[in-house]
Design a protein around this nucleic acid. Structure first.
Lengths: 184, 184
DNA sequence: CTAAAGTTTCAATAATTTCTGAACGTTTAA
DNA sequence: TTAAACGTTCAGAAATTATTGAAACTTTAG
């Protein structure tokens, strides 16, 4: 497939950013290409367009599927697999977020939980223990929060984001209401 | 310096996670070590404790300083530089967040802004243009939002996070109030 | 000024990650 | 049953990234 220069530069950019986003160059490129493509693409089309080997396309797609970012589509009377993004931009971003949190935060959280189980044995450990506890609390709060945000509908979430720091004013508002009348 | 097994395993974990968090193994270890240490450490102490070369310590510290995660302290009558975390756990997490957003989002945002300037030249570009616009909007909203959250005091932010998806109820509350009485 | 104590830089090397392509597996049309 | 069309795997090669250590640089005490 032939890409217009503007699309090509976007796809290549996705490649360059790939490793920063948690995967590698090829995988970034494949994802960029699929998002920019109106119709699903076969492994062959992907490989030719990006000049990468059959094997690499296969591995890349597999990885993207493990991130739940790509789905497979079949066309009647055609034995090829066709690939397309597994949802809207919004959903994709969400998945990247979830998946990264799983890989970047969960292991640390579980290490910290273990480490905090038994009491510090000396002054050095006491200090470290305290620090680990802070990190643990921070990560817990953050994890819970993002999990809850995921459960909010995109529309509400957009409203919330547009509100920005204005949300503080509303928190104050709530405090006033709670103080002057209704129970919490 | 000699680390107790529990602290050592935490520091090593920071090393393993390092690359997922946006830096490399050594840098993760150095940061972990500094956070766990009650007193500032010299380059020598860091290198010995982690068994890494002088040069590597120097480069690692430099990188951590570029992330604004480590500060230098001097002790009267001592020519060595001593290093310590540049703030509370909370502040550190914030910096990592900001810094990563700068590296992971900003370049894409600027590419998209450029790409969206001129009109699509054909059907393929028209579709891609639309997709880029969606991504652009998403990233803009997200960037603005996180920037605003940064401006909220840690206490308020904690309240907000603890509230979780309960924040939606408050949004509804606000809507009711606005509708029935005061102007926005 | 000189030497000692420290830090930084960077070319060479080591370690790790990614990519290729050939071999193998599977499905289906004939 | 065969062979063509496709997907997958994985050992080795290529590319990239991290690390070392020696040389250069900086600061300061004497």
């Amino acid at each position: 497939m032939n890409l217009s220069p503007k699309i090509e530069s976007f796809v290549m950019h996705c490649g360059e950013m790939g490793s920063r986003w948690g995967f590698n160059r090829t995988i970034g490129q494949i994802m960029g290409l699929l998002v920019m493509s109106e119709k699903p693409l076969s492994a062959n089309e992907i490989g030719e367009t990006l000049s990468i080997s059959r094997g690499n396309v296969s591995m890349g797609i597999k990885e993207l599927q493990s991130w739940r970012l790509v789905s497979t589509q079949h066309i009647a009377g055609d034995r090829k697999d066709y690939y397309l993004p597994a949802g809207s931009i919004w959903e994709l971003a969400n998945r990247v977020f979830e998946e990264r949190s799983k890989r970047e935060v969960d292991p640390t959280l579980s290490l910290l939980r273990d480490a905090l189980l038994d009491d510090p044995a000396n002054a050095q450990e006491a200090y470290a223990h305290q620090r680990m506890d802070e990190i643990h609390q921070l990560l817990e709060t953050l994890t819970k929060w993002t999990a809850e945000l995921q459960s909010i509908s995109p529309e509400k979430l957009t409203t919330l984001m547009k509100l920005g720091s204005g949300v503080v004013r509303i928190l104050d508002l709530k405090d006033r209401i709670v103080k002057t009348g209704s129970a919490d």
